[in-house]
Measured scan of single mutants.
Amino acid sequence: PDLGLTQLFADPNLIENLKKNPKTSEMMKDPQLVAKLIGYKQNPQAIGQDLFTDPRLMTIMATLMGVDL
């Protein structure tokens, strides 16, 4: 199971919303991170391994779920 990750990354406004959010806007200036996020739309399971190697993803996930870290 993808634990709902498919829906989190399926939002067509995902990148724009993250660019507008004060907690994630600075991160979204990294083209490699943006490319990763776009890739998760097609393969949400890929985030599982990346969560352990890129701490920014935890902040992004929390933001998408509405959790304040």
Rank of each mutant, 00 (worst) to 15 (best):
D2R: 06
D2F: 03
L3N: 12
G4K: 15
G4C: 10
L5T: 06
L5C: 09
L5K: 05
Q7F: 07
Q7L: 11
Q7I: 12
A10W: 10
P12G: 06
N13A: 10
N13S: 08
N13K: 09
I15L: 09
E16H: 09
N17Y: 14
L18R: 00
L18E: 00
K19F: 06
K19D: 02
N21K: 03
N21V: 02
N21A: 04
P22R: 07
P22H: 07
K23A: 13
K23W: 09
K23H: 13
T24A: 02
T24I: 06
S25W: 03
S25T: 09
S25F: 05
E26P: 06
E26F: 07
M27I: 09
M27F: 14
M28D: 00
M28H: 00
K29N: 11
K29L: 10
K29D: 09
P31D: 08
P31A: 09
Q32G: 14
Q32R: 11
Q32F: 13
Q32L: 13
Q32E: 14
L33C: 02
L33T: 02
L33W: 05
L33N: 01
L33H: 00
V34Q: 05
V34A: 04
A35D: 12
A35C: 05
K36M: 12
K36G: 02
I38R: 09
G39V: 09
Y40S: 02
Y40V: 04
Y40N: 02
K41C: 10
Q42G: 11
Q42A: 12
Q42C: 08
Q42F: 07
N43W: 06
N43Q: 05
P44K: 04
P44L: 10
Q45K: 12
Q45A: 13
A46L: 14
A46H: 09
I47N: 05
G48H: 15
G48K: 14
G48M: 15
G48T: 15
Q49Y: 12
D50P: 03
D50S: 04
F52K: 15
F52T: 08
T53D: 14
T53N: 13
T53C: 07
T53P: 03
D54C: 03
D54K: 00
P55Y: 08
P55H: 12
P55G: 07
R56V: 08
L57K: 00
L57G: 01
L57F: 09
L57W: 11
M58Q: 11
M58I: 15
M58N: 08
M58K: 13
M58F: 12
T59V: 14
T59G: 04
T59I: 12
I60R: 00
I60E: 00
A62C: 09
A62P: 01
L64Q: 03
L64F: 04
L64A: 05
L64H: 03
L64D: 01
M65N: 05
G66P: 06
G66D: 12
V67I: 14
V67L: 14
V67T: 12
D68L: 02
L69R: 08
L69K: 10
